[in-house]
């Protein structure tokens, strides 16, 4: 058997083990090469498919790179003003308590301008899921400092490295929300390796299951990369993330009640 015929044998419907979920639309993503958003979108879409909740799920997209998330997941969407996604999600779940509602927010959206909204949605224990994509930088506006930018990290607005004396310290949002009695499940994940993606998927499943059981708010931080903002290749970015981000933002579940 030649290599070509063998390939033809393998590539057939009955051998298919991994393909794009239909919950993910065919629209080409606008994200930069290697952007973690794509992986996270895919994982959320896969969980929505696995749990059979496509018709019952409403996503709330933020302002930032993922403002256009509604172009990629085939569900109903609301697009929020900068930082306000948890407020939209609050009203949506209160008015339609049988649905699954999630917000999808970056670090500028959630940790900076939307800090009040996320803290209070968490404190009220709204029955929603929050995806917090933390890559320590503003992507959409061109790589400025985020609240989660590491000390010394160079960004467009900290060209000599973040000086914590004048700009404050990188905010550990997951630790903060885990202290609030309203939160049920707070976990910090990543998506740079197959193993990390599998773990992330498990966490996402658990979060939506929490909604199903009316358990209240599930908060999933995903430590991510921004190769354009960090001015590295996607592969280098993953290495930089492991070396610099993971020690300050350690992975793992902070709270599971």
């Amino acid at each position: 058997m030649t290599a070509t015929t063998e390939l033809k044998n393998i590539i057939s419907e009955e051998n298919l083990i991994y393909s794009k979920t239909p919950v993910l639309l065919d629209n080409e993503m606008h994200y930069c090469p290697g952007c973690t958003h794509g992986v996270i979108h895919k994982v959320i879409a896969e969980v929505i498919e696995d749990m059979g909740i496509q018709e019952e799920t409403i996503g709330v997209s933020p302002v930032g790179c993922s403002v256009l998330a509604y172009n990629y997941l085939d569900i109903d969407w609301q697009q929020a003003a900068h930082g306000r996604a948890p407020a939209l999600a609050t009203a949506t779940i209160r008015l339609m308590p049988e649905k699954y509602v999630f917000t999808y927010q970056g670090d500028g959206d959630l940790a900076s301008i939307g800090c009040a909204e996320i803290m209070h949605a968490c404190n009220r224990g709204e029955n929603i899921v929050v995806f917090f994509v933390n890559n320590g930088i503003y992507g959409m506006t061109g790589g400025q400092m985020a609240p989660t930018t590491l000390e010394g990290q160079v960004t467009a607005t900290t060209p000599y490295g973040r000086d914590c004396k004048t700009t404050g310290f990188p905010m550990k949002i997951s630790e903060m929300v885990s202290l609030l009695p309203g939160t049920r499940f707070v976990t910090r994940q990543s998506a740079e390796t197959p193993g990390a993606v599998r773990k992330l998927k498990k966490a996402v499943k658990k979060a939506f299951a929490n909604t199903r059981e009316d358990k209240g708010i599930s908060f999933i931080e995903i430590v991510s990369t921004c190769s354009s903002g960090w001015k590295q290749t996607p592969v280098q970015s993953n290495e930089w993330m492991k070396e610099h981000m993971f020690p300050y933002y350690p992975l793992g579940t902070l709270k599971d009640e």
Binding site: N9, I10, I11, S12, N15, L16, I17, Y18, S19, K20, L24, E28, M29, Y31, P33, G34, C35, T36, H37, G38, V39, K42, A191, E192, T193, P194, V197, R198
Partner: peptide, 20 residues
């Protein structure tokens, strides 16, 4: 070996994996 690792980490979901 059809392990799907590439598919899992692909941000643009452009990889389909088959295994026999």
């Amino acid at each position: 070996i059809g392990c799907s690792s590439c598919g899992l980490v692909c941000p643009d979901t452009v990889i389909t994996v088959y295994r026999m």
